[in-house]
Amino acid sequence: MLELDNISASYGKVAVLQGISLTVPEHQLVTLIGSNGAGKTTTLRAISGMLRPQSGQILLAGEDISTLPSHLIARRGLAHSPEGRRIFPNLSVKDNLIMGAFLRLTGKRSRGDVAGDIERVFTLFPRLKERHKQLAGTLSGGEQQMLAMGRALMLNPRVLLLDEPSMGLAPKLVEEVFATIHRLKAEKITMLLVEQFAAAALEVADYGYVLENGKIALSGTAAKLRKDSAVQAAYLGGGS
């Protein structure tokens, strides 16, 4: 469904990605793990058009999207819950979700049942329902994270990118976020998950890639990576 072929990207003169290739098959959950600064967020930004890659191809359902601006990539069915949540603080919680469905409401993607999907997000995150009239800027960090995920889901995406959905959350909320990811996986949503909690990410994922200094160092089924001694030592707090 989503395929990166030898993608390179840089910020100014600093090369961040040096030839990344990875594949996210339909209905699968693929995770990208790696230490801070390895290029995980940059990879997602390159996919969703927030950063133009210098070379390489990004295929979404077989079509090259690597030179398109974000809004046209979204139109082809890619949703991105970005690092730092990036919700719209001056819009209400519900209006944030409506913005997630912008393309469906304006006829650029098939409309479906927008009101029903808002209810579905409220079922996933009951806290958002209680606060649906509140300005999103007044939400707590955890609630904003839920909103960012819910907003991305509102596109009815073919592929969903999740960037560090657990970042900065209390342990109990991290559990809740992963429970949600499990549920989305059960719904067969195609996802690419970037996570700092490598153990939890490999627990839920089908397949994993390990990113080191802008290159794929290792890849394999999540089960295999969980047992890999190098991965355990570096990312799973293991070795003992």
Binding site: S70, H71, R75, R86, I87, P89, N90, K108
Partner: peptide
């Protein structure tokens, strides 16, 4: 919806782009 897209763009242009807003 279009008016809200204006507010969304004002709040965070990049994130608005991710929503499919031109």
């Amino acid at each position: 919806v279009f008016g809200k897209a204006v507010i969304a763009t004002a709040n965070d242009r990049e994130a608005a782009g991710l929503m499919g807003i031109n």
